[in-house]
Amino acid sequence: MTVPALALAPRAPRRSAALSWRRLVRSPNLLVGFAVLVLVVGCAGFARELAPYSPIDQVFTDQLKPPSAAHLFGTDEFGRDIFSRCLYGARIALVVGVIADGIAMLLGVVLGTVAGYFGGRADAAVMRVVDVMLAFPYLLLAMIVVAILGPSLTNAMIAIGIVYTPQFARVVRGAVLAIREQEFVEAAGAVGARAPRILARHVLPNVLSPIIVMATLTVGFTIVETAGLSFLGLGASPPTPEWGSMLATGRSYMLTAPWIATFPGLSILVTVVGFNLVGDGLRDLLDPRLRGRGF
């Protein structure tokens, strides 16, 4: 063959059409989810301006007040304003959710790419570890990690990040396996490009869409799991206004002051639904093949 090899190695195909504004607007899931996220991010960003009270000041004379004009969501057993605590809680939930998700994504992409691209022993080793991790219930695995690192919000984020790594690794490996066999990758190798370059220029850009979809969908889960850890006393330490720990303390007042647990619970619900709607919408847009496949 005399055809220059370079010509056979096209740049990574762009999916500009997939992200067109028109398609975006036509997806109601995406729009609603996006609106919810804007609201949550707004609450988090402007918590200081929006909150009528300090989230941590205890006022025993205002104890266990039901929702009213003065206290929109009522007060807890320490007389703290639950509305203010929910607003500040959004900040923590977002930061924690996104960072934990980021950790999972970073680790998962590295492991998945190594396994998928290099195959052989590396693949076998990585994927067996991943299988073992997947065999554990998420929360149990996270609790083990926190037990080793010590209970704190930072360690909870790390724990959740580690727990969700296998899922990213699996998805990325699968995508990389498919891309690896494509002619343009083969061609790049034929013209002498080394593995790092091939991965960075040809493989990763092509597996980006499943990663984005996965990342968006997982944020919801990481928020719930971190709240779960805090609920068990393994995450945020008091008086941090964290939704999970608010739920935990509110639990003992379910019969007498249900608003203490209800509003942080609703906050978690709304945020997670927001992320999931956006994730679903993005999946439909970017990667129709993944449709209907639950994580």
Binding site: I56, F78, S237, P238
Partner: peptide, 23 residues
């Protein structure tokens, strides 16, 4: 213990004592 700790933490903060709670 956690609730009592949180209440005491709130009062001590007012006299400049920062308490870090571990459960």
């Amino acid at each position: 213990g956690a609730k009592l700790g949180e209440a005491v933490q709130g009062y001590l903060a007012k006299v400049g004592v920062t308490v870090k709670i571990t459960q």
